[in-house]
Amino acid sequence: MSKIVELKSVFAGYNNDVILNDVSFEIYDDDFIGIIGPNGGGKTTLLNVILGLIKPIKGSIEFFGDTENKNNKIGYLPQINQIDKKFPISVCDVVLSGLIYSSGIFYKHSKEDRIKVRETLEKLGICDLQNKPIGELSGGQMQKVLLARAIVSSPRLLILDEPNTFVDNKFEGELYEILVHLNKEMAIIIVSHDIGTISTYIKTIACVNRGLHYHKSNKISEQQLASYNCPIKLITHGEVPHTVLKTHNHILS
């Protein structure tokens, strides 16, 4: 178990608004962390700080080990609504873009890069999609393609921002199984609005609401959430959730 990233009392925000307030946080290479918290609480801001998309106003962020391969340390799966589905690009090219850092000044891709792409697509079972334009994909397929792009560079840390929006339950289960498997090779941080579903897969929970409370277990109660100043609703807990519908009379028949 070795440390990958360390945030030391980080303050960050946008236009006069402090969103992350004194956040200290360490990520180790076998972590599987679920980030939860209310909207506007700073989940995405925290991800952006780790990804280097925004700089902390105060405090520091440090990366450890393997400093040679600086750029492929982190794989990132953005929220799907940030992606333009009409953009004319094929699945294969999207996944290749995950290797953009390694391709030299003119960004020509080597044969090894294409083999890596092929292997990643195979791993996720979407080889048949490789020549399709992204506009023809379903929500679940699109998420898998974005996941392929995120992991094609074999990063040490995988960051997923709400990968379970706009997908069906079957895909969601499949996705978590893949993540559990990937967790053997890399640390994973997942932001989710649905803590009930992810709690069986993740190892620890980070509650982000301006500050950050690190809960080193995947079981959490409403009382604990309240004491962490993290007012979100627990939908279910423990087993994979299921919905029981009340028996109802068919009036029309």
């Binding site: 600086k70 750029n71 940030q82 090219d93 290749l96 953009i100 850092y101 020509k108």
Partner: peptide, 21 residues
């Protein structure tokens, strides 16, 4: 010469930024 770079950045700027482009 910069076809792939232009394509990738046009497709997803933020992602390119995470790769220090």
């Amino acid at each position: 010469f910069f076809y792939r770079l232009i394509l990738f950045v046009a497709y997803d700027q933020n992602y390119a930024r995470t790769h220090k482009i």
